[in-house]
Design a protein around this nucleic acid. Structure first.
Lengths: 176, 176
DNA sequence: GACCTCATACTCCACTGTGGAATGTCACGA
DNA sequence: TCGTGACATTCCACAGTGGAGTATGAGGTC
């Protein structure tokens, strides 16, 4: 008997993390390390990512022909370069409607079960997180002082400012 | 030759999702389905979870003796009940400091690469997401009208209100 | 110039989280 | 009585997290 199979058309869809790597590679060839640092800086505040995943996506995209791995250089560093297929895949991704945001906020989870947590403990958790958000806001305010050419960069930074201000306001109104 | 092994002390730590299920089970035995709906209602806005994981965690916790699976009832429904070990595990979890929040906001990712996206397309994405947040805010405002006894519930709801208002404000100031 | 330390750079693994398909059951209305 | 839709669970592939492990080279120190 013959086995019929459906050829994988255009392979699977890109996930957003992989797509963003392709996006950054438009600036020129980069290594996993460089991509990781670039991504952390520009999208890290609203798109968490990890080293492991960056390297995994790169390897996978190399298999799929979306990027090509260059020769190893110093310290095993391996630059990746965009292919035409990669450029096309990125363009396709950019046309897809983005999904809704997901938030996972462990402090709110603790707060939700606040009745089961010793009051002083809970207060300490809250104080700790308030400090973190205060620090983040201060950093964003610093960032926003410098001239920002890219309107898209400005938009995402503005989001960070709005978010952190709202969270701090909430902390200040919070009655344990 | 003899194989030496280290007995698992107190097994692994609970993850936050599993812990929250134990938290809800303090109210009495529940099935996976009921837990899912309860969790969605009370923590779904800041702690995303999926059916698959709820059932997986329940099965795992049953193996570990943190819950006991009751007899199947109508429609295969299987109630889970808290054990003393489960209560203790929850108490331990509640003392651990909660981690930082993670946000993954695909719209901001699209915006970050806005230069690669046709302007009308991007505008449509933005409009769509604005509507979603408007609807969420309206719902939260409705919720907040009713008398809320639990101060912890009130605190998390207030967070939702602050967040959605901030996001909408950002949308309104957004210059593509 | 031998040594140390630290930042760079990558790999691997176990676990957690997401999304959707598949399956079956019962309640309820046409 | 015959759908239809809400209920309820299971399974799977893939995405994402966190940490350990390894190795290289740059720079400072004695």
């Amino acid at each position: 008997m013959s086995i019929s199979y459906i050829p994988q058309m255009a392979s699977r869809q890109l996930n957003a993390t992989a797509a963003s790597l392709l996006g950054f590679l438009h600036r020129g060839p980069m290594t996993g390390w460089e991509l990781m640092r670039t991504a952390e800086q520009s999208i890290g505040d609203f798109w968490s990512l990890t080293q492991s995943q960056v390297y995994r996506e790169l390897a996978q995209m190399a298999d799929q022909g979306l990027v090509t791995a260059g020769e190893r250089g110093q310290r095993e560093r391996r630059p990746y370069d965009l292919t035409d297929a990669g450029r096309a895949a990125f363009r396709d991704w950019a046309l897809e409607p983005p999904g809704e945001e997901t938030i996972r906020f462990p402090l709110l989870l603790a707060l939700n079960f606040g009745a089961h947590i010793p009051a002083d403990r809970l207060a300490a958790f809250v104080a700790h997180h308030r400090a973190i958000h205060q620090a983040r806001l201060t950093q964003y305010e610093l960032d926003s002082l410098s001239q920002i050419d890219d309107p898209y960069r400005k938009a995402t930074l503005d989001f960070g400012l709005a978010y952190e201000r709202a969270v701090l306001g909430w902390f200040d109104r919070l009655e344990i």
